[in-house]
Design a protein around this nucleic acid. Structure first.
Lengths: 220, 220
DNA sequence: TACTTCTGATGGCGCTTGTCGTCAAATACC
DNA sequence: GGTATTTGACGACAAGCGCCATCAGAAGTA
């Protein structure tokens, strides 16, 4: 016999304070602990090798709280990925905007690349966002695609606003944006997989040349 | 009591013919069946979801023969990846060489890109080589990195031979090559994940412009 | 025809996983 | 202080995994 009591009874999701924290505060803290544990484990031992037990041990919580917030490890991966990419992305945008508002305006391409590769030096984030997230499931694939697309669109809009006579078709514009993201990503990925043995400056230089070359060869 | 007979006895790995096949022929056929099964399963349900049992069922063989040739599924993945990438790579090189030996010589960049994206339309191969192979293990990561590097080097050597005054440093040359591979890869990957909804021509066009732009902006 | 080798089918072992239930202790409310 | 809720620790369960052993029958060999 299911719980057939009044909804008013069920709806009291208030909970009560415990350990000096309200129910929402506890939930938020637990979520944060699992997010941190996810970034740590996904970014080191990898997503497929990470189990619920490991996450709980790392977070210092038990599985009950894991399932209270996330449906499974894939769910956590999506959350960690989203948060990490948000962070990287906003860092790049901020750096570009900061450079643009300088007097005189700085080199936006250089500034953006610099911010990106700096963020990428966080190996855990880099690993999660460019390695672990790939080939997990159709759902994660979709998330990955849409986020890359979003990042590309963001940069393209910025570029278009600075290059008044943009003549490429919508389709080619999107492909070009993704290709640029791919160029930067792949060189960054090799940087990571080779333990950052090249200098950041050389990565910025090579990718900067690529972008400037593209701009120079746009139809006019 | 173990088999303590003469080594000559153990060394007769000849086996005998069975079903009209010699021992080596059988082994080769079994290997091929598992390779095909691997490409099929890794390329559809994905590497992490593929089990030994599934591979055996797909190959129409039993696990005994799997372990006779491969140590584990990761071993098979490496073999399938290597074979698939070899195939794609040699196709691209062949197309470029064919175009170069035309009278008059064709557009090498166009020819290479055309061959690449045509090969990429094999979704199973594309998935294995650009999705499933990532983030599996350090060993596979190393394989991936070295193969991408090799592909980049191949194309760079070709490019350098056609651009006599190459002035980039060794480091920047390598990064640039990898970045170019990344640009092509990422646009191809999105093509795959979006079910090939763009036209091949638009991908070739966008990536061709990127490459030509780079060539135009090389130091001279 | 006898004997050996090879094959496919089946079942089982030990292990790990996700997931759930229980229970005593800690904490908060009245 | 008494009662209800929350917490952490622990164990248990079915399921699925890699891997191995067995065994009857097919295919070759003498």
């Amino acid at each position: 016999m299911k719980n057939t009591s009044q909804n008013t009874q069920q709806d009291k999701q208030t909970g009560r304070t415990y350990g000096g924290e309200s129910a929402e505060e506890r939930l938020a803290r637990q979520r944060r602990q699992f997010m941190d544990a996810g970034l740590e484990l996904f970014g080191t031992v990898g997503y497929r090798a990470t189990t619920v037990r490991m996450l709980c041990k790392q977070a210092g919580l038990t599985d009950r709280y894991f399932y209270k917030t996330f449906s499974d490890t894939e769910d956590l991966l999506a959350a960690v990925y989203t948060e990490s990419l948000d962070q990287i992305q906003s860092g790049v945008i901020a750096a570009i905007n900061a450079s643009a508002s300088q007097q005189p305006a700085g080199d936006l391409i250089e500034a953006g690349l610099e911010a990106f590769f700096r963020a990428f030096e966080n190996a855990r984030m880099a690993r999660v966002c460019w390695l672990e997230v790939l080939g997990v499931s159709p759902r994660i694939d979709t998330l990955y695609t849409s986020r890359i697309q979003q990042f590309a669109d963001l940069l393209l809009d910025l570029g278009k606003s600075m290059l008044p006579d943009w003549r490429l078709s919508e389709t080619e514009t999107r492909i070009t944006g993704i290709a640029l993201i791919g160029a930067i990503s792949q060189s960054a990925l090799h940087w990571l997989l080779e333990d950052y043995c090249s200098s950041r400056a050389s990565l910025i230089s090579a990718n900067g040349r690529l972008i400037r070359g593209l701009i120079g060869s746009l139809p006019r």
